[in-house]
Design a protein around this nucleic acid. Structure first.
Lengths: 215, 215
DNA sequence: AGTATTCTGTACTGATCGGTACGAAATAGA
DNA sequence: TCTATTTCGTACCGATCAGTACAGAATACT
């Protein structure tokens, strides 16, 4: 790496975090270079030298956002049963989109609205499609492992979860509280297939009333 | 009305429809005056003389959008039971956000992303809050009328539906098909309380398998 | 010290943004 | 035909946009 020449006067990852925050709040088109430079604490040519143009900066910011703020996805995927995967994903997302001290909502959803540059929309859509595929694969494995009924459609279950969490992002940006989203998560979970095989229901269920009987 | 002076050379409602289309696809910030004038077939001063500035034009477009493209909301509210209200709302929204020949998604969601002007975000949020309140009131009536269990929370049920349809808007903008959204709608409906009182289940249910037993 | 190399800060570029001034065009009433 | 009134079209306004040229500053190597 470059050891000769004037050393960089800022932390590239820290500045990228600031850019994440701006894109998160404003979206891609709504984030101006002036606002980005102000938030990142560096001036314009430093951005272009370090990250490339605005589109490349956004891609880097999106990657970092996923790393830093979507850990709940892989956490959820590692739960032992399909139902616990779904529960962890829904509650984890509800928490992530209403984190105090961070912008409400989800960068991936906020930025996907004004698709002036189709390249950005493309990567965002693909990002969500990838996550959906991860859950679909996880549910296929659950069927193999026997904790999910074989007549369930893994793709449809994954689509259901992604749709609900996409809704969470919109609602959170609207100002909906964490508690309200959790209540919705519990109701959504009520329509998720029950866990098979374990006589003792090992799910970490927090609601009391409604039970779903699966044929 | 003004009968004297040069007559207007365009249909104000037709031009507004074109503006709706642009805002629908691009959002508020993403819709430039140049694109609006091109789509509406009129030039800039005519817009300002007829509708006011960009913010006022957007408000008019939003109002017309609700009138022209959200009829399924009032349709749903008039269904006889809470469950049919929910079913009609979900399927009606799934249809509306994937209408062929129209932009995918929902103007109200598309435009809510880059809140550079908080006034626009305000009206959009309030728009959705109003709809949510309408459904909550409808569910309160359903409890009074006896087709919805008294221990259900009308506000929470309304929040659930709004969250799912918000998700529909995002997913449709992502390119998700009408059929995929309908499948999600059916699953969401599975977590909706069953209709009370009517021995013969009068719901227009199209799925076959899952049934929800309410305590 | 001198040079090569890299980064920083200012100041700029052309393009586009929302919004408007102003004169020509088109109507109604006189 | 003349005047009052309204709309239309062009051509512009200052502000902001993303992106960059260029000179000075800071380091390493010789």
């Amino acid at each position: 790496m470059p050891v000769i020449g004037r050393p960089r006067g800022f932390d590239a990852d820290l500045a990228l975090d600031a850019a994440v925050d701006v894109f998160w709040r404003r979206g891609y088109g709504g984030a101006s270079l002036s606002e980005l430079t102000a938030a990142m604490g560096i001036n314009r040519p430093s951005i272009y030298a370090t990250y490339g143009d605005k589109a490349q900066l956004f891609q880097s910011a999106l990657r970092r956002y996923v790393e830093q703020n979507m850990g709940y996805v892989t956490d959820a995927l590692h739960r032992p049963t399909a139902r616990e995967v779904a529960a962890a994903f829904l509650t984890g997302n509800a928490r992530a989109v209403t984190m105090p001290g961070r912008p409400a909502g989800c960068l991936s959803v906020q930025a996907a609205v004004a698709p002036e540059h189709s390249a950005q929309l493309e990567s965002l859509t693909q990002n969500r499609a990838t996550i959906q595929a991860l859950f679909a694969d996880r549910f296929r494995r659950a069927i193999d492992e026997g904790d999910l009924a074989g007549d369930e459609d893994p793709d449809e279950l994954a689509a259901f979860l992604i749709t609900v969490t996409s809704g969470f992002a919109v609602r959170a940006a609207d100002g909906t509280s964490h508690e309200a989203l959790l209540a919705v998560a519990q109701r959504a979970l009520a329509s998720f297939p029950a866990t098979l095989g374990s006589a003792s229901r090992s799910n970490s269920r927090t609601t009391e009333s409604k039970e779903h009987t699966h044929a």
